[in-house]
Design a protein around this nucleic acid. Structure first.
Length: 1065
RNA sequence: GGGCCCGUGGCUCAGCCUGGUCAGAGCGCCCGCCUGAUAAGCGGGAGGUCCGGGGUUCGAAGCCCCGCGGGCCCA
């Protein structure tokens, strides 16, 4: 049976807790999963958030979207895989742990506390953060398998990574190569592009112009500019743009006449910069300079350069490159292939060596400045070049320069040996597979994605760190490598382990080997330093592991199969892979969406997911990013605490289209909460009456119920809503779904339907009309709660438990099926007519308001003028509603006769007839009506003929005084405001009823309590009230209404000139 | 420099894919109403060149092109 609602006010904080308890006690989550276990598979793959320790609004949005989709698909009958994931390796955690342990430099990890301890701490840290974040996600009502998330640090997961890398190696897609990358000399590791992004800080650096003597020419130089003097020892070429114009400039220096080669467009600027005068003596295209040899300015100091000069055809020559710009500098770019990305690219094209005489800590490994930290060498080099006469000008520049995000050290570009996945070789497959198999939401993201893929280069996956998937590459002395694909293989191939520098030979037999390993190294743990201990033998050569770990982006890239523990176990992979749906923020388009496809094409030659959706960022109300420095951070916990989980969730799915940025606004949230409040009120109202009447829909036969038009209408609307919501979610146009729900609740259900049926609910006893209304409301909730369950799981559950469960029997709203629209119930004509009725009622109310006739006073008659068939039908079919809502005795379609007032249009007549205007005006004043009826006519006045038309008239309509009119779309409403004595009496009765009710409420009387009413008022009121005493008694549950001294609880009501007293009987 | 998205009343946004019932909602402001959902609810009013300019079309906020402004990604 339906019970009186437990909470009368919508207070999410309270009942959401209660619902949480309910789910927990009944193990509802597991039951929901169980109930769909035989459904078609739906592999949702969670993009693993980094275990930073706290979620923010963006993470919350992300999970709310995911949860909604998961719940939606579950209700549709799918057996949804809903395992959450966490990204747990990587430098950020290493840094936190280093700080916690008070370590200062990378070496400390090995020398101070040892890699094993360090790794243990990292693991602890990551697991702890995972726990904290899990609680936060749970708090949002996100239903995932929190007790068995996938973790990138598990052995199975790491092994999955090894498997993938082995595949890459077998296909020739894993290579070692020298590459120029950002390098932090303190952390001693390469940094990926994404780690550097946003870490550009203003910094003062040298800005110098250096002249390189052209070989074989007296006093002729190439002029270059650089902000990194320390890279000059590694200079191997000067790059010019083949298309640009270059000039030979005659310059007067203090040492005499010199010729400098500078880009023509920059001559003036450069000369003024160095403070010299000069003139152009010759110009030529950049390409004509190609091959021009110059003398390296530090060749004596760096003897290796001498060797290069002999060994390499293109060393110390002008080469061509498209990357040269005319922004800064001279248009001739100092090129050090070991210290610049573009330098590297262009240098490789010319077969130049990748020379980088700098070690991991940023110190020169050879030459004049051997052992000096490169940034410290800058001033020394400047001074040195000045002495040698090559320095033209030395200044400083403030520019943005990348810094290490953890230690703030300026990064250097440095060529190092790194391991690459040769994604460039499989790009075409990625694009083709993506094209054929993946649906993007919204679709234009695909364009963005494709562009990203086109532009991407090979993937640097090695990192010179500790906390990550160890690179499973073993290398022999001679450089031969072998990639291990699993723990089992590692054990099989292993011949010895090294522990504390001591070599322990392993037995041949696999099981015995395993025993020894376990004894010496402990249980399997594929992290460092465990795996570093293994010596394997392949092709008769002993190999040791390459010390690097893998880029964390690789970790998440393999998630679609690694989270299924593939290949260690195959069953899930075979059943589930590829993923059906993923959704992440827009920053992931070129990250996770990409890393997954790249890794998957490498491993399986195809893409790992079928549908992918993108959402935006969460910003503050003004559109600024939330950040500590702006102090505008809003935490999800705060939102939940203040406004509740359901309002938060619905708001995040309602505020804006998911692919756009969401400006978080408390006001918007309040608006959503209000909608839920309205829904709640509708529920409270319905449940209150239904419980009083012991309403039981299962005992009714809907065929026999006398449904009214409004009942059929709201059911029609509810069924239409199903289509809108379903389509909205399926096409990821989430606002379509949420706005449809919002409008239905506020406009259709509350503002209109409940308003229409209220009185039917008040009837006592088994009134069929009332039961029809109850039944309708009940059916509406049956649909609505299902539709809302994925968005607002708590309120849906709370209402469901009381209103529906007693009759449906299913334990939770989340176990119900997603509703299917009943096409037969949809009556579009009725919906249109109801729209018309609503418009008429609005217009009528507006007219009344202008006429200052309160709704409490009935009006005699309302006339609708219309040509619209729908409106006509509506007035006929839904007449009862109109009369009721407009409080009119009669509502009819008809025509109101009105007087036309026809006057001359002075503005038209004057200019046209000038001097004759007066005559015409006089005529029109008298015969205007004839002209109006004729439309146009020729009139002869004093011998002149005038052609007159309706344009020469102004026409005003004059309504009879007792009408007040208002337009609506489709017609016009006329309210007859004639107030008869009868109408007045009725209105007054209502005035009194209302006040007596107010008094009942103040006394907190029960609905069933009887009262005696005493009224002191004017004779006139007394007489008028006398005509409706029965009505007053019935409405106020009075046994008696007595005129005379007010008794009992007495209130004076000056607006109606009365004192009213009531007493409970 | 390239790609993508966004630009609608004071504010936050729907609508745009599928051109013709909208120029809309909420908030804020002003004025009212209702009172058996009630520390709720409802109505009315004021307020917009739908960024600007072209084009396609009988018709464009919506489609196409150019420009301006903002955001993101990439270089």
């Amino acid at each position: 049976m339906i019970k009186e609602p437990e909470f009368r006010d919508y207070n999410p904080g309270e009942f959401e807790e209660k619902v949480e308890r309910f789910w927990k006690e009944n193990d509802t989550y597991e039951k929901v999963k169980e109930s769909r276990s035989n459904g078609p598979k739906y592999y949702f793959l969670d993009g693993p958030p980094y275990v930073s320790g706290a979620i923010h609004l963006g993470t919350a949005w992300n999970k709310i979207i995911k949860d909604m989709v998961i719940r939606f698909r579950t209700m549709q009958g799918y057996n949804v895989r809903r395992q959450p994931g966490f990204d747990m390796h990587g430098l950020p955690i290493e840094v936190k742990v280093e700080q916690a342990l008070g370590l200062k430099v990378k070496k400390d990890i090995e020398t101070e506390i040892g890699v094993d301890n360090f790794i243990r701490k990292c693991k602890e840290f990551a697991l702890n953060n995972l726990k904290v974040m899990t609680e936060q996600f749970k708090m949002l009502g996100v239903w995932m398998d929190w007790d068995k998330p996938y973790m990138t640090i598990k052995n199975e997961y790491i092994e999955s990574g090894w498997f993938t890398l082995k595949r890459a190696w077998e296909k020739g897609l894993l290579e070692k190569d020298k590459r120029v990358l950002h390098w932090c000399p303190r952390c001693e590791t390469a940094l990926a592009e994404h780690e550097v992004r946003g870490e550009y800080k203003i910094r003062k650096d040298p800005s110098i112009y250096v002249k390189f003597p052209v070989e074989g020419k007296e006093n002729e130089y190439l002029l270059i500019w650089t902000t990194t003097p320390w890279t000059l020892p590694a200079n191997l070429a000067v790059t010019v743009h083949p298309e640009y114009d270059y000039a030979k400039v005659k310059v007067e220096t203090d040492k005499g006449e010199e010729y400098w080669i500078i880009a023509k467009a920059l001559v003036e600027r450069v000369l003024s910069e160095v403070g010299l005068k000069g003139e152009i003596v010759e110009t030529f295209k950049g390409e004509e300079l190609e091959g021009l040899r110059y003398v390296h300015v530090l060749m004596d100091e760096y003897p290796t350069q001498k060797e290069f000069r002999e060994k390499y055809e293109w060393a110390h020559r002008v080469i061509l490159g498209e990357h040269v710009t005319l922004g800064d500098g001279t248009g001739l770019v100092h090129t050090a292939p070991g210290h610049g990305e573009e330098d590297y690219e262009v240098g490789r094209g010319y077969g130049l060596p990748i020379y980088s005489p700098v070690d991991d800590e940023g110190r020169y490994t050879e030459g004049f400045w051997k052992g000096t930290y490169v940034k410290d060498a800058d001033p020394q080099i400047i001074e040195y070049l000045t002495e040698k006469g090559y320095l033209v000008k030395a200044g400083t520049i403030e520019h943005k320069y990348p810094h290490c995000w953890r230690c703030k050290t300026p990064l250097i570009f440095r060529a190092t040996d790194q391991w690459f996945l040769k994604v460039s070789k499989v790009k075409d497959t990625i694009i083709k597979e993506n094209d054929e198999k993946v649906t993007w939401y919204p679709d234009w993201v695909k364009v963005r994605y494709d562009n990203g893929v086109m532009n991407s280069g090979d993937w640097v996956i090695s990192r010179q760190r500790y906390w990550g998937i160890p690179l499973p590459i073993w290398q022999a002395e001679d450089g031969e490598i072998y990639v291990v694909g699993s723990f089992k293989e590692l054990v099989e191939k292993s011949v010895a382990i090294v522990l504390d520098g001591e070599r322990i030979e392993l037995p041949e037999d696999y099981n015995e080997k395993l025993k020894v390993i376990e004894e010496k190294l402990g249980p399997e743990d594929l992290h460092r330093p465990y795996v570093d201990a293994f010596i394997i033998r392949v092709n008769g050569k002993e190999m040791r592991r390459v010390k690097d770990v893998v880029d964390v982006w690789f970790d998440s890239g393999i998630a679609s199969w690694a989270s299924l523990d593939y290949p260690r176990t195959e069953e899930n992979f075979r059943k589930l892979w590829p993923a059906d749906f993923i959704v992440e923020g827009e920053d992931q388009v070129t990250k996770w969406f990409y890393s997954q496809q790249a890794a998957s094409v490498i491993a399986f030659d195809t893409v790992p997911y079928r549908k992918v959706a993108m959402h935006g960022y969460v910003l503050d109300e003004k559109g600024d990013k939330m950040s500590k420095s702006l102090g505008n951070i809003i935490r999800p916990e705060e939102v939940v605490q203040k406004e509740g989980r359901d309002p938060f969730r619905f708001y995040m799915l309602w505020a804006t289209n998911p692919w756009e940025n969401l400006r978080f606004s408390w006001k918007g949230l309040a608006q959503v909460k209000r909608m839920l409040n309205i829904l709640w009120n509708v529920y409270v109202l319905s449940a209150t009456y239904m419980s009083l009447d012991d309403f039981d829909p299962t005992k009714l036969n809907p065929q026999e119920l006398p449904f009214r038009e409004e009942d059929r209408w709201i059911l029609s609307r509810a069924n239409s809503l199903i289509g809108d919501v379903t389509e909205g979610v399926e096409t990821f146009r989430l606002t379509k779904a949420t706005r449809a729900i919002y409008n239905f609740v506020v406009e259709d259900l509350s503002r209109w339907y409940v308003r229409l049926i209220r009185k039917r609910m008040w009837v006592e006893g088994d009134d069929p009309d009332k039961l029809a209304a109850y039944y309708t409301v009940w059916k509406v909730f049956d649909v609505l709660l299902r539709l809302m369950a994925p968005f607002t799981p708590y309120i849906a559950e709370e209402i469901y438990q009381n209103l529906l469960r007693p009759f449906i029997g299913v334990e939770s709203v989340h176990m119900l099926d997603w509703p299917k629209a009943d096409e037969k119930a949809i009556d579009e004509e009725l919906e249109r007519e109801m729209e018309a009725v609503r418009r008429i009622v609005e217009a009528g109310s507006s007219a009344r308001q202008r006429a200052k006739i309160k709704l409490r006073y009935p009006v005699r008659r309302i006339i609708i003028e219309t040509e619209d068939e729908t409106v006509k039908k509506a007035v006929e079919r839904l007449n009862r509603l109109l009369k009721d809502q407009l409080n009119a005795k009669e509502v009819v379609v008809g025509r109101v006769e009105r007087e036309l007032i026809i006057k001359p249009n002075f503005a038209k007549v004057g200019p046209e007839f000038k001097g004759d205007a007066k005559k015409v005006i006089a005529w029109i004043s008298e015969h205007g009506k004839e002209l109006y009826e004729a439309g146009e006519m020729d009139v002869e006045l004093e011998g002149k003929t005038f052609h007159l038309t309706r344009e020469h008239l102004t026409i005003e309509e004059k309504l009879p005084d007792f009408f007040v009119a208002e337009d609506f779309e489709g017609g016009r409403v006329f309210v007859d405001k004639t107030l008869t004595r009868e109408l007045l009496a009725e209105g007054l009765a209502r005035e009194f009823v209302r006040r007596i009710q107010e008094m009942r409420k103040r006394l907190d009387l029960d609905v069933n309590d009887r009262i005696v009413v005493t009224i002191e008022t004017t004779d006139e009121n007394r007489e008028l009230l006398g005509e409706n005493l029965d009505y007053i008694m019935k409405e106020t549950r009075a046994t008696e209404v007595v005129f005379g001294e007010a008794k009992g609880y007495v209130v004076e009501w000056p607006e109606v000139q009365a004192k009213i007293g009531i007493e409970r009987v």
